[in-house]
């Protein structure tokens, strides 16, 4: 890491830690000894150019992509050493909002939201499931969309429903993969505000992968710049936006 400003992010214990992480695809090495810590209750934004390995990083954290070397611990458990049951138990505590929202096309919004509950909400009555579905839909402002199909939703609505689906199991951590990409500026801002609201309402810790500097400014407690497979710099918005570093500067002064 090249440095920038020291920052106090000692709000809580570490919930995710990556250490000396390496990941290659063929001859293309995207992570080269990457280190990261996410603290309880913290919103950490990861900035980086397209193809720099940001999405790969969060997919490694949930075990969707296996790492070449290094370690990832989530709630103190080494992800690469977990068996399938252990991995599933960890995944239930982590919500993942995909860039494409990844709603199940063949299911209605209600069925999309019920899907995780039916598998992990053992013993829940029909009434409890209905109540939770409505509760999360209200928290993203889309109660009226409960019986729509994903194909009937706009891009912003899909993101909100995707977010509702990650919230329904009340995860401790949420990983956002470019939550505002592909949205108009107004909808993008609404999603950004929603991320802030969710942290307040649910007390989640989050890693947010984004290029959107408005989103970065309003959601980030701490920003980490990923470049050449390592953590190039980190700090809060104010510290990084005043940096003259050749890698960091263009993100904050692109216009």
């Amino acid at each position: 890491m090249t440095g920038i400003q020291p920052i106090d992010h000692s709000a809580g214990p570490v919930v995710i830690r990556t250490h000396d992480l390496y990941k290659s695809f063929g001859k293309n090495t995207v992570l080269r000894g990457f280190n990261l810590e996410l603290h309880k209750g913290e919103n950490l934004v990861v900035l980086g150019k397209s193809g720099s390995g940001k999405s790969v990083l969060i997919k490694c954290i949930v075990g969707l992509i296996s790492i070449d070397s290094g370690s990832i611990t989530v709630f103190g458990k080494e992800v690469s050493e977990l068996d399938q049951a252990g991995l599933d138990a960890i995944r239930v505590k982590i919500g993942f909002l995909f860039q494409s929202s990844a709603l199940y096309d063949s299911m209605t919004v209600r069925e999309n939201l019920e899907f995780p509950l039916r598998r992990h909400g053992k013993g829940m009555s029909r009434e409890e499931i209905d109540r939770l579905v409505i509760e999360v839909l209200e928290s993203v402002g889309l109660r009226h969309a409960v019986d729509l199909m994903p194909s009937e939703l706009s891009g912003g609505m899909r993101k909100r429903i995707g977010l509702a689906r990650t919230l329904i199991l009340k995860p401790d951590i949420i990983l956002y993969d470019e939550p505002t990409t592909g949205l108009d500026p107004v909808t993008g801002r609404e999603i950004s505000k929603l991320i802030v609201d969710i942290r307040q309402q649910y007390g989640t810790s989050s890693i947010i992968i984004t290029h959107d500097m408005y989103c970065t400014r309003i959601v980030a407690d701490r920003i980490l710049v990923l470049s050449d497979g390592i953590c190039h710099a980190q700090g809060n918005y104010q510290a990084l936006s005043s940096s003259e570093d050749l890698v960091v500067h263009p993100f904050f002064h692109s216009i």
Binding site: K59, V62, L64, D88, A89, R91, V92, I94, F96, F98, Q99, S100, A102, L103, Y104, D105, F115, P116, R119, H120, R165, L169
Partner: peptide, 11 residues
Amino acid sequence: TEQIDAMEVSG
């Protein structure tokens, strides 16, 4: 469209 990945990360 990452729906299979979404299923996997939901446990």
